[in-house]
Computed example of a mutant assay.
Amino acid sequence: MEFPFYDEPNTAAIICRHVMRGEEPVLYVSHDEDDGMWQFLCGKTAHETGDGRLVSLKFVFDLDNSVSALRDMPCGYYAVRESQTGRWAVRKR
Rank of each mutant, 00 (worst) to 15 (best):
S56Q: 04
F5L: 10
D64M: 06
I14D: 08
A46N: 15
P74Q: 13
A12L: 10
G86P: 04
T11H: 08
N65Q: 09
G86K: 10
F5C: 09
S68R: 13
N65Y: 04
D34E: 12
L41M: 12
I15L: 10
L70G: 06
G76H: 07
E2D: 15
V26D: 02
A13T: 02
G36M: 11
W88E: 07
I15Q: 04
C16S: 14
H47W: 11
M1Y: 08
N65S: 06
I14H: 06
F40Y: 07
W88N: 03
D72K: 14
N10Q: 11
V19W: 05
H18R: 12
G86F: 08
Y78A: 01
K58I: 03
G43M: 02
S83R: 10
M73V: 06
R81D: 06
Y6V: 01
Q39M: 12
L63R: 09
C75G: 04
V55I: 13
R91I: 02
C16P: 04
M73H: 10
R17S: 13
V19P: 03
R17Y: 01
Y78N: 01
D62E: 14
P4V: 11
F3I: 08
H31E: 05
T45S: 15
F5A: 09
P25V: 00
E33N: 07
K92W: 07
D35R: 07
H18E: 13
G43E: 00
M1D: 10
G43I: 00
V26I: 15
D51N: 14
M73Y: 08
S56E: 04
S66A: 14
L57W: 05
R87Q: 11
V19Q: 05
S56C: 03
V90F: 05
N65I: 01
C42G: 13
W38Q: 06
N10Y: 08
Y77A: 05
F40G: 02
L70I: 09
M20T: 01
A46C: 12
